[in-house]
């Protein structure tokens, strides 16, 4: 079922060609499906998977990706582009997990990434590995330029490649977007929660360390901070006596925000009583911005 592949992975060049060859009829069904796709991605952070074999439904699904991209572009928000790309990548990755090796290889060829006997090229790995402790290169088996990964770990890396690919292709030029799609923007906006107020927190006295200020600034700008950055920020703020609720609220501006997961993680950080890493470690995370000549960010006054 060739069209099923295209419906699952609509960002591939094959899917793009398919859409280009269609005379897309911007009918009610297509517009509604596309609208739902965008709203679900932006509101819930995920796009429900759909398993149909019906040719007509598959075609709608493939085309809805193209229309969704137009809709997201019209929202003119870096935050929404980022959040939408994450949801699309997650959707594709959930299909990849249960798909054949042949289809997996077909998707990864899209990014020129090879996967052979459980390993991939270190240069590809470095370009796309998620920034998390368990994905640090040092914690992987590496030999002769090849990184060993389980199938699911490999798919997680591919998910990142998909996300970057989608995000870098957006927004699309507004003038190229048909008026029927433009007419939907207001409805999409209405369905989304009011844009979260940009939350700021201030220390009770003195100032936060420059690396921490930078992280808070990045969060405010809806940058997708790596896990290790979020963890460092949470540990720091807990040491500064900030309560869990306020910290969870801060992360609301992260494009992949999920309240339940965030709350669990922040509470866990508090429960475990992690020590704030020293500046040398913060530097190794690539988070140091100021060389303050102190030993630990908590010493900053």
């Amino acid at each position: 079922m060739a069209n099923q592949f295209l419906a699952h992975y609509p960002f591939t060049s094959e899917a793009k060609n398919f859409v280009a060859e269609q005379k897309i009829d911007l009918n009610y069904d297509l517009l509604e499906i596309s609208k739902a796709r965008v709203i679900s991605a932006l509101k819930d952070g995920q796009i429900p998977s759909m398993d149909t074999q019906v040719e007509e439904a598959l075609k709608l699904e493939i085309c809805s990706y193209a229309v969704s991209r137009m809709l997201v572009s019209l929202l003119k928000s870096k935050f929404y582009v980022s959040r939408y790309s994450i949801a699309e990548a997650k959707r594709a990755s959930s299909y990849l997990k249960v798909d054949s090796d042949e289809n997996l290889a077909k998707v990864t060829r899209e990014f020129n990434i090879g996967w052979n006997k459980g390993s991939m090229q270190v240069s590809d790995y470095l370009a796309y590995a998620p920034r998390a402790l368990e994905y640090k290169l040092i914690n992987k088996h590496l030999s002769n330029g090849l990184v060993s990964l389980t199938r699911n770990e490999f798919i997680r890396v591919i998910e990142e490649a998909i996300r970057k690919h989608i995000e870098s292709s957006l927004p699309i030029n507004e003038q190229a977007i048909p008026s029927q799609v433009q007419a939907l923007v207001a409805e999409v906006k209405k369905a989304l929660p009011q844009e979260t107020a940009k939350i700021t927190i201030q220390p009770q006295k003195g100032e936060y360390a420059p690396c921490i200020k930078k992280l808070l600034e990045d969060l405010k700008n809806s940058e997708n901070l790596p896990h290790i950055a979020r963890w460092s920020l949470a540990v720091y703020l807990i040491h500064k006596g900030v309560d869990v609720d306020s910290i969870v609220n801060l992360f609301k501006t992260a494009p992949d925000f999920n309240e339940k997961v965030t709350r669990y993680q922040v509470e866990y950080v508090k429960k475990r009583g992690y020590k704030m890493p020293n500046c040398s470690v913060i530097m190794s995370y690539g988070l140091c911005v100021a060389r303050c000549r102190i030993k630990n960010p908590l010493e900053f006054k």
Binding site: L126, K136, I138
Partner: peptide, 16 residues
């Protein structure tokens, strides 16, 4: 960022 990962690998930073 990716280069930083290479340094960490070579220097032994972040070994779990």
């Amino acid at each position: 960022d990716a280069r930083r990962e290479l340094i960490d690998y070579v220097c032994g930073t972040g070994l779990n």
